[in-house]
């Protein structure tokens, strides 16, 4: 018999060091204390605190110098509510979302379906379509402001051909924002296309083969097999499209800078123009809070509905 008789020299209870002591002795505690604070500090200082302070500043009229003293309560939000340029910026943001979801995502999906297979030519198209995404937004805006410049680009050629006056679409109240929407689609559809391509490549080949053996035509395979399986990718894509639309700014500055007469502002360019450049800290913070609430509300609702189902 090799089973030892119980000969506890040390009784279990008194001999056991505490969990904390053990964490200290094997180096876990030190690791936590060295590895975690840099990230936490950075994040708290530059992300959390500014957001909390935005909520505080929003109740003041403050130029940013000295201490905020002039408490105005909800005044900043009331001004915002009455400001037609803000209404316009909200509407424009909605339009960006609509264009993203109804033009850009279908375009991205179509392109993804056309080129998701791994061939040499598809890779080239993929790189071309994705290229605008990695261009800086300001550079993109600048390039397109040249193309649509009434003295130089497409618009100049069009007005010359029609024999009319030089036409500046980016300075035209009717045409400026549609041009912005076009550029948004141009710049970002490649990103969504990449998401769909990845998802399409994740669909097992035997699934589409089974459908083909069952007699489905290519269009039917797409409609009945591929698209339903892409629902999670579409949900993710819409999420990024909306969050991105809410933060659109860089592109606006070189294209229209919010003009003509504040008709092409997005929420963020409105915030920048009316809050930051004029150093109205309280007012700018109020706009920020509105943007923050919209974003968080959307994210929470969306994650609990659309993303849950898929």
């Amino acid at each position: 018999m090799a089973v030892a008789e119980t000969n506890n020299i040390i009784s279990p209870a008194q001999g056991r060091p505490s969990a904390l002591k053990r964490a200290l002795s094997d180096g876990r505690l030190v690791t936590v204390l060295v590895f975690l604070p840099p990230a936490l500090l950075l994040f708290t200082l530059f992300v959390t605190l500014p957001l909390i302070e935005a909520a505080g500043y929003a109740g003041y009229k403050w130029s940013g110098y000295g201490d905020p003293t002039e408490w105005v309560g909800m005044r900043n939000f009331e001004i915002l509510q009455k400001h037609s340029a803000f209404h316009q910026s909200l509407m424009n943001t909605v339009w960006v979302i609509v264009a993203s979801c109804l033009l850009q995502i279908p375009l991205a999906m179509s392109m993804a379906l056309l080129i998701y297979r791994k061939t040499w030519s598809n890779t080239v198209f993929r790189l071309i379509f994705f290229a605008p995404y990695i261009l800086a937004e300001v550079a993109t805006g600048l390039i397109w402001s040249f193309i649509f410049d009434g003295d130089y680009g497409v618009a100049a050629m069009a007005s010359q051909a029609l024999g009319g006056e030089p036409f500046f679409p980016l300075s035209d109240r009717t045409w400026a924002f549609p041009v912005v929407l076009f550029v948004v689609v141009w710049k970002f559809f490649g990103f969504h296309m990449m998401i769909f391509i990845a998802a399409l490549q994740g669909i097992p080949e035997d699934l589409t083969e089974a459908a083909r053996i069952d007699g489905a035509k290519p269009g039917q395979i797409t409609w009945f097999v591929k698209l339903p399986l892409l629902k999670p990718a579409i949900a993710v894509s819409v999420f990024f499209a909306v969050i991105g639309s809410l933060q659109l700014f860089d592109l606006i500055v070189p294209l229209t800078n919010g003009g003509p007469s504040n008709s092409t502002h997005t929420i963020v360019s409105y915030l920048y123009t009316f809050g930051l450049t004029r150093l109205k800290v309280g007012f700018g913070s109020a706009v920020g809070i509105v943007l923050f609430l919209i974003t968080v509300a959307f994210a929470v609702v969306y994650r609990n509905t659309a993303m849950k189902e898929t």
């Binding site: 605190l49 500014p50 935005a54 969050i243 963020v268 809050g275 800290v281 923050f292 974003t295 968080v296």
Partner: peptide, 26 residues
């Protein structure tokens, strides 16, 4: 919880806090 806290950052738009961020940086 600490990890969820950091992950929340993915949702927060930089633009929303840009004014207080400017003050903080200053």
């Amino acid at each position: 919880y600490i990890m969820s806290y950091l992950l929340l950052g993915m949702m927060f738009p930089l633009a929303a806090a840009v004014v207080p961020l400017f003050i903080k940086i200053r």
